[in-house]
Structure formats: C-alpha cells, structure tokens
Design a protein around this nucleic acid. Structure first.
Length: 577
RNA sequence: CGGGAUGUGGCGCAGCUUGGUAGCGCACCUCGCUUGGGACGAGGGGGUCGCACGUUCAAAUCGUGUCAUCCCGACCA
C-alpha cells in the first residue's frame, strides 16, 4: 500500500473527548471515528487489526474443534421470553419494532438463538459434544458508554457455545477453551491472567475471565492474585484475614446501651469509644430486586455488592437511599438515622451476615436508636430472625491467599475474554433436549465462551504504547513495515524504496511505502503514531549503499544494506504465528 | 438514575461578560521554496455558531425549552 493512497488521516492533537490511552491513540492515529455515543467507525487500519485478531481467534477455535457459524443480529422477542430474559435483561437490551409492530431486539449475546438452533438440529447424544461459535457485532445499550472501544455499545465479539451430555464433558470443553484462550492472547501479544469471577446475569455456576494486566487507568476491574497461581476478580475473590481484635471483653464487662452522640460514621464511633473498628458490627441496608436486605459485616471491612446480591439470590442491587432507610425504620417502629441502624427488631427482612461476624464477641452495634449503641453485645443477644451467613466481604490487598496463605496482591485488569459453565440454564426453560442411549430426553449441558475482539484491540494499545504512539505486536499490526524515502525527489532514494517495496510485497510482507511529498519529520511522526512494528528509512546514506532499519518496540536502529533489511523482514514475518 | 461540564468548518480552540458583517492554529486545494523528527511564503475553498421558541431594529452572544456529547458516581454477559 502506498501511503499517498492509504485512507487515513492522523491528527495533530488528541480529540478532546478521548480519555483513555487506547481511545486517544486510535482516534488520533486515524483508526477509528466516533459515529455516536459508544458507536465507532472502524477505518481501514482498524479493520485490518480487527481482522488479524479475528483470524487468530478463528484459527485457534477451529484448532480446538469448534465450528464457525453466523447468527442474526436482530432477534425476535419470543425467544427471549422463553428463556425469561426479556424481562430480566433490563434496559441494556436494545428493543425495537418492525413495520408490523413485531417486537425485536438487537443481539447483546446469543444464548437464546444458539439454544434454538441446537434444539432444532441436535437431537441425539451421538452428535455431542459440539461447540459452535461466531464472530459478530453485538449491541448493548450501556447506561454510560466510555473509554472508546473498551466499553462501546456496539462492539465485535467472538461468542462460542458448547453442548454436552454431562458435567464431565462440559468440564473438559471448559478446559479446552481455557487453553485455546491462552494461545489466542499469547499470539495477540497480550499478557493475560485467567481469574475466577462472578458469573453474573448470564447465569451458570463457574466462570473465569481473561484479564489484560495494564498500568493504565483503563483497567476497570480489580484483580487479586497470588504467586501460587490464585487469581480472582474482586467480585469473586475470597481471602484469609489478618489477625484482629474481635472480642471486646477487655473493653466491655457488661452488655448495655450507652449514649454515643453524633457518631454517624464508624470512624467517629471507634474514636468516641476508643476501640478498634474491628469491635463494631456495621449494618448496611441494600435494595436487592427492589426489596430491602440488611448486610452485617465487621466494621473495618467493606461489602462486595455482587457477593451480597448473590447471597440474597437477586439480580439487582444498590445501596438504600436515606429515604428508604427512613421508611424501613418507620415500618419497624424505629426512627434512627443512618449510623445507628442495627439488626435488632428487624423482622421479615433478610439479614445477611458476613463470615467475619461469626467470630465477633462482646461487640458494639447500632440498635435503631439515634445517638445510642449497645456495647458488649453478642449476636445471640439481639434475637435476630432470618439470619444467614455468607462471604459478602470485599477482599483487600494485604489479605492472605485462600489457597496458600501468602499475602494477596491487587492490580487493574481489562477483561478481554471469559468462559462460563452455563449448565442447563438455557436448555431447561427453552426445552432444548436430546435423547440419550435409552431414548430418554435431557436438556443439554451448556457452556459459553466470549472474546471481545474490538476490546482486545484496544487493550493491546493500552499494553503497547509510548509517548509517540502505538507499538503494535507484529501479529496484529495493520502492516508489518513502513518504508520511508526521506526525499521522494531523490531518484536513488525513491528507486531503492520502490525496489524494496516490490520485493517485500512479493514475499508476503505487509508493507506501506510512504511516498508522500512530505518532510521526513512528518513521515516519522506518522509512522510512530500509527505504530508500524518496523520502519526502513531510505535517506542520504543510500549513496554508500545503506538504509536505516528501526524497530518500533525497542527503538533500536541498525544501518544495513537494503537487501539485508528485506531478508530480515521476510524472516520475521515468516515466524509470526 | 444522581452530580459536574461542554456544544462555534474535519480536529483543537477564541469570541459570549458589555447584542451590531463569524475568527485563530492545524488539516484540505493551488503555486513557490524546502526535504532526517509535525518547515516557510503567497493565494484559496469550507461553518444558517446543536436545535426550537422568545426578547430586540438587530442574537454565536440575552431568556426559556429541548437534544446531543463528555467526565465522576451508581450500573454493567
């Protein structure tokens, strides 16, 4: 490709509305243009990158035994009603009507469709196991799209679905996909961690996410990990706690109610009583699926909302507003303000206590009376009904690994892929069954496996850039090399550049010849910004028979003969896989 | 959904307070000159100032409404 014909326009400055590195870089270097919020045009350079990632995914999925197909982007409401997700999915599901007023939606994921395909054509145990996948645009009407390609509304995803007759079969395929994912991200030049995670609204029991670990602020997830190999998303991580004072016997000799004026926060209360916060039982009111739930936890710790939501068996959670708390107090005949709330007397409302609460003795707790707390208390003193214990605690750095006991570390991660065990979550309600050896019907045991293609591209930029621009891993770079004749009016320079260009093209190297009548500085800036992995500069030294060969990643520069540079590049490209 | 901000050529911005013929830099086109890290000179094309209504002799500028976009939070296979 000749640069003079390449459809790309680089910008002198970063667009004002771009926040994270990948968005800034991709927009400035002419890879993407925003069409509307969370929706982007993929310009020719971007599309080349995306196709390369797709091809790596495709090769590895095929090698792992999966089969590619393509499902429709527009889907009928009826199937979503069968699975029960028409109501459960919420506003993220983009709904629309056709001219006959038939209600449709844009596919945010394809469990319903694939399950319908399977029940139509997958009738015998003899046909399984089978794994079907597609690479396609998805649409999710995010409340707040952001971070460019990292959290768009329309994005490209590879989604695969497996069908088995047994849990063992599913387990095998799950491991198979985990290995394929590792190879895919390795080939894309991405360092990923496979972490345990919550399985969320998709449902199912077990899930893992593949996270790109970056030092940029684009990582939306906290990942806790240990040198022993344990790694988990914060919404799922568990830990062992450091030792703490959990028995208040040295502070309180009897159980009594005392005045604690204006102690609205844990900090104020522990200061007022001159006790560690580990002796205070914190009570928080959440609204889970529109109903109140009280969470109890040792006060030095925070509640992990996803864990709490799962413990409460809900699909939706948020902290209660002060108005809702007031209402709840009134219903139970109290009038305490937040800061003095407690489980005492809260009948007919689920109370979920974190595991930390089990060990607490002679502690301090709110009793739903403003400016008062009860000290030297044990949970049994409070006569709590509907009590349930669960791990609802947010892990913190410094906690210990649940598996080996060493201190956990925390890092930010960008989720680029995930794998779920779905079980019969979709096959059962949709009555998608096969016949076994005895002619008896059973629902499929399913798994699903996603990779965000466009997000992977953005994550690669987050992981590979410098102040001058992008540094693509060669396997997913839009082109392998750019040849820059410094002065296109110089006959020898231009002839040499053209000759190398033709030779490289012939050898299958993806090469751009920067034949623009621009000054060298402009071409160098653009080359760095766009992120060609290699640059060959044909300048003055060509009179002595040499060109400059530069590696973008390392900045290393060599002076070599043109034919050496060509050979070198051909070798490098041969080795990409 | 709560909080904050912004909409002026493709991109980045000024002008608005105090209403009076829409401007700058980059990009784009032409010519000259230049050619190893975003040169220079001259000439040129492109914007009903997000939209609507209102106030006024006159609105980018003032008022009301509305839409869009971005940031923080909440939310999020």
């Amino acid at each position: 490709m000749r640069m003079s014909k390449l459809f790309v326009q680089t910008l002198r400055e970063f667009p004002a509305d771009a926040e994270v590195i990948s968005h800034k870089m991709l927009a400035r270097a002419g890879y993407i243009r925003k069409l509307t919020s969370g929706v982007y045009n993929y310009l020719p350079l971007m599309w080349r990158v995306l196709k390369k990632i797709e091809n790596i995914v495709r090769e590895e999925m095929d090698a792992a035994g999966a089969q590619e197909l393509l499902m429709p982007f527009v889907q009928p409401k009826e199937l979503w009603e069968e699975s029960g997700r028409w109501d459960a999915y919420g506003k993220e599901l983009m709904r629309l009507k056709d001219r006959h007023d038939r209600v449709m939606c844009l596919g945010p994921t394809h469990e319903e469709i694939i399950t319908a395909i399977a029940r139509d054509g997958l009738k015998s145990y003899k046909q399984m196991p089978v794994n079907l996948y597609q690479i396609q645009s998805k649409f999710r009407d995010e409340v707040r799209p952001r971070y460019g390609l990292l959290r768009g509304r329309e994005f490209i995803m590879k989604d695969a679905y497996s069908f088995d007759t047994s849990e063992e079969g599913l387990d095998k395929e799950y491991q198979n996909m985990a290995r394929a994912y590792k190879r895919i991200f390795d080939r894309c030049g991405l360092d990923t961690k496979m972490v345990q995670s919550d399985s969320g609204a998709i449902g199912g029991s077990v899930s893992h996410e593949f996270m790109v670990i970056t030092d940029t602020d684009a990582g939306e997830n906290d990942v806790f990990y240990c040198e022993c190999g344990y790694a988990a998303n914060s919404n799922h991580a568990v830990s062992k706690l450091p030792a703490a004072v959990v028995d208040g016997k040295d502070y309180f000799t009897e159980t009594k109610i005392i005045d604690t004026p204006n102690t609205h926060s844990i900090e104020e209360l522990s200061k007022f009583l001159n006790i560690p916060s580990t002796l205070i039982l914190k009570s928080l009111v959440y609204i889970v699926d529109k109903k109140p739930v009280i969470a109890l936890i040792r006060a030095d710790r925070a509640v992990e909302e996803t864990k709490l939501m799962n413990a409460a068996g809900g699909n939706d959670i948020r902290i209660a507003s002060s108005a809702e708390i007031a209402e709840l107090m009134t219903e139970h005949g109290f009038d305490a303000v937040p800061g003095f709330i407690g489980p005492k007397g809260m009948k007919n409302i689920p109370i979920i206590a974190d595991e930390t609460v089990r060990e607490m003795k002679n502690f301090v707790v709110g009793i739903n009376q403003t400016d008062k707390h009860q000290v030297g208390t044990n949970l049994s003193d409070l006569g709590v009904e509907n009590l349930q214990y669960a791990d609802i605690r947010l892990v913190e750095a410094g906690d210990f690994c649940p598996e080996c006991g060493k201190p956990l570390k925390v890092t930010k991660g960008i989720e680029v892929g995930n794998i779920f065990k779905l079980g019969t979550k979709y096959s059962k309600p949709m009555n998608a069954v096969y016949l076994d050896q005895n002619g008896k019907s059973h629902p499929y045991i399913m798994g699903c496996y996603g990779i965000g293609i466009s997000r992977t591209a953005a994550a690669a930029v987050e992981a590979h850039y410098d102040e001058h621009g992008i540094k693509w891993p060669i396997s997913i770079a839009p082109y392998h090399v750019v040849i820059v004749p410094v002065n296109i009016q110089d006959k020898l320079q231009m002839e040499t550049a053209e000759k190398m260009y033709e030779e490289l093209k012939k050898a299958g190297v993806e090469v751009v010849l920067d034949d623009r009548d621009e000054r060298a500085g402009v071409k160098f800036k653009d080359a760095d910004l766009i992120g060609f992995p290699y640059r060959v500069t044909v300048g003055k030294t060509i009179t002595e028979g040499f060109v400059e060969y530069k590696t973008r990643e390392t900045g290393e520069v060599e002076t070599v003969k043109p034919e050496v540079a060509v050979e070198h590049l051909i070798e490098i490209v041969k080795k990409i896989k």
